[in-house]
């Protein structure tokens, strides 16, 4: 517990706020999934998993590299689950087919997370570079799937625009725009090796130099966008689910 509070005090206040908001968003989305139709389960679980992926910052055992890597894998599973949910919703809008059940969604997610854990356990301890690679893969998948989800949301909205909950999808569109900016800016920094992780790696482990000083303006802008879009993402997710809950009540 002491370690936990120590981590809290070491964290950037904005990062801490972001984790808290993701906690709220995760709780709201999980609650939403319990009392609602199955199609929402994947979407809700996905958003809840974002919270899991984001708590590495306050995880007292976060210094275990395998656990840090696991957070990023959970993040990747989160966006894939969300996308699966929106894809199902889109299929429903076109065919009105509702298949499967909630338990299967829960169990499948748990199984994927378990296999991911096993994957990490049976492999060598990831180096800081490997963890950074995992984070970059996660961001790349997030950016790509955000674009895909925006397109799915556009199509869903145009199919159901005169229904009660159509405006709720506009809210989700805003969520994905925020997430795109959040993850996209992080990915941008990673691709040009201006991210903090790379800076730490080269400072300790290699003799490589960085050109970050030459582009400090855009680096700072990207970092700000990442930070505020991250907070906006968590707030908008909580808001979107609360709004959707109100619309469906």
């Amino acid at each position: 517990m002491e370690k936990f509070f120590e981590l809290l005090t070491q964290m950037n206040p904005l990062d801490l706020v972001q984790v808290v908001f993701w906690g709220l968003a995760g709780a709201i989305s999980f609650y939403f999934s319990i009392g609602n139709a199955r199609v929402w389960t994947s979407i809700s679980i996905g958003f809840f998993l974002i919270f899991i992926s984001q708590v590495y910052g306050i995880n007292p055992w976060g210094h275990y590299q395998k656990l840090t890597a696991y957070h990023y894998i959970v993040g990747t599973v989160a966006i894939m689950t969300i996308t699966h949910g929106f894809l199902e919703y889109y299929v429903f809008c076109r065919t009105f087919e509702i298949s499967g059940n909630k338990l299967i969604v829960y169990l499948s997610t748990i199984a994927i997370l378990a296999f991911s854990g096993i994957f990490l356990l049976i492999n060598p301890t990831p180096s800081p570079n490997t963890i950074r690679n995992l984070k970059m893969v996660e961001n790349a998948i997030w950016v790509f799937l955000c674009v895909m989800n925006l397109e799915l949301i556009r199509k869903i909205y145009s199919a159901i625009k005169d229904s009660d909950i159509s405006k709720g999808f506009i809210a989700f569109g805003i969520v994905f725009i925020c997430i795109f900016l959040w993850r996209g800016s992080d990915l941008y920094l990673q691709i040009f090796q201006w991210d903090q992780d790379w800076q730490d790696i080269i400072a300790i482990m290699t003799e490589e130099t960085s050109d970050i000083e030459e582009y400090i303006g855009r680096v700072q802008l990207s970092r700000d966008v990442m930070r505020y879009a991250g907070i906006m993402s968590s707030i908008s997710v909580g808001g979107a689910f609360a709004y959707m809950y109100k619309l469906l009540k």
């Binding site: 139709a37 509702i98 229904s163 009660d164 909950i165 469906l248 009540k249």
Partner: peptide, 12 residues
């Protein structure tokens, strides 16, 4: 009813 739950509020 089942399908409408994905599109319409409980009251409606």
């Amino acid at each position: 009813e089942k399908a409408a739950k994905l599109l319409v509020s409980g009251t409606n």
